[in-house]
Amino acid sequence: MEAMIINQQNKIVYTREMQQVIMTVINAVAKLVRLPKNTEVSVMVVDNSYIQELNFIYRQQNRPTDVLSFAMNELGEDEPDYDFGGDVNVLGDIVISLEQAQVQSEEYGHSLNRELGYLVAHGMLHLLGYDHETEDEKKLMRNLEDKIMHSVKLER
């Protein structure tokens, strides 16, 4: 599993430990769902103003959010079908507001690394087609998130 991680913000100190949390969770998800080794994902760490802009553009929500996922294998009505020839399985992009993650970690009373790990797991599952629109979908996604967080020792 390949991952490109870019820290695009300067409001919160971004550490090597955070980078390691992101990679560890990505690899845990890859192992859990048996992703092929040629799978790639990108993670961009941003601040609230950046993610608010994306949230407005793509979801018409004019407020910051914690994580957004942009799946490459999920086609909307107006999106062209690209054939990558099977060499690389590109999952897509995850955008995480580290600023919002810090706020939420304080609200929930756990570490910023735990919140960051959870947001990576949540974003990865969205890239894989999981959602939480119905109660059954929400239960399934929460169960997978719990398994991932347990496997990387970032439980509540």
Score class of each variant (00 low, 15 high):
Glu2Ala: 10
Glu2Phe: 11
Ala3Glu: 06
Ala3Lys: 03
Ala3Leu: 02
Met4Val: 15
Asn7Ala: 10
Asn7Ser: 12
Gln8Cys: 06
Gln8Phe: 02
Gln9Gly: 06
Ile12Val: 15
Thr15Gly: 04
Arg16Cys: 01
Glu17Asp: 09
Met18Gly: 03
Gln20Asn: 13
Val21His: 00
Ile22Glu: 04
Ile22Phe: 04
Thr24Cys: 02
Val25Phe: 00
Ile26Ser: 09
Asn27Trp: 03
Val29Pro: 08
Leu32Met: 15
Val33Thr: 09
Leu35Lys: 12
Lys37Tyr: 09
Asn38Val: 04
Glu40Asp: 10
Glu40Trp: 09
Val41Leu: 14
Val41Asp: 12
Val45Cys: 10
Val45Lys: 02
Ser49Glu: 09
Gln52Ile: 00
Leu54Phe: 08
Asn55Met: 01
Ile57Lys: 12
Tyr58Thr: 04
Arg59Trp: 01
Asn62His: 11
Arg63Thr: 11
Thr65Arg: 01
Asp66Ile: 15
Leu68Thr: 02
Leu68Cys: 05
Ala71Gln: 09
Leu75Trp: 07
Gly76Tyr: 05
Glu77Trp: 09
Asp78Leu: 13
Pro80Phe: 12
Asp81Val: 11
Tyr82Ala: 14
Asp83Pro: 04
Asp83Val: 05
Gly86Val: 04
Val88Ser: 06
Asn89Tyr: 15
Val90Glu: 11
Leu91Gly: 14
Leu91Asp: 13
Gly92Pro: 14
Ile94Asp: 07
Ile96Asp: 05
Ile96Tyr: 07
Gln100Asn: 10
Gln100Val: 12
Ala101Asn: 10
Gln102Asp: 14
Val103His: 07
Gln104Thr: 05
Ser105Gly: 05
Glu107Met: 06
Tyr108Thr: 04
Tyr108Val: 01
Tyr108Cys: 01
Gly109Val: 07
Gly109Lys: 04
His110Ala: 10
Leu112Lys: 05
Arg114Tyr: 02
Glu115Ser: 07
Leu116His: 04
Tyr118Ser: 00
Leu119Arg: 15
Val120Gln: 01
His122Pro: 02
Gly123Arg: 10
Met124Ser: 14
His126Asn: 11
Leu127Tyr: 00
Leu128Pro: 10
Gly129Ser: 13
Gly129Ile: 08
Tyr130Gln: 08
Asp131Cys: 08
Glu133Cys: 03
Thr134Gly: 05
Glu137Arg: 04
Lys138Val: 00
Lys139Ile: 12
Lys139Arg: 15
Lys139Ala: 14
Leu140Asp: 11
Met141Pro: 00
Arg142Glu: 11
Leu144Phe: 09
Asp146Trp: 04
Lys147Ile: 07
His150Ser: 11
Ser151Gly: 03
Val152Trp: 06
Lys153Ile: 03
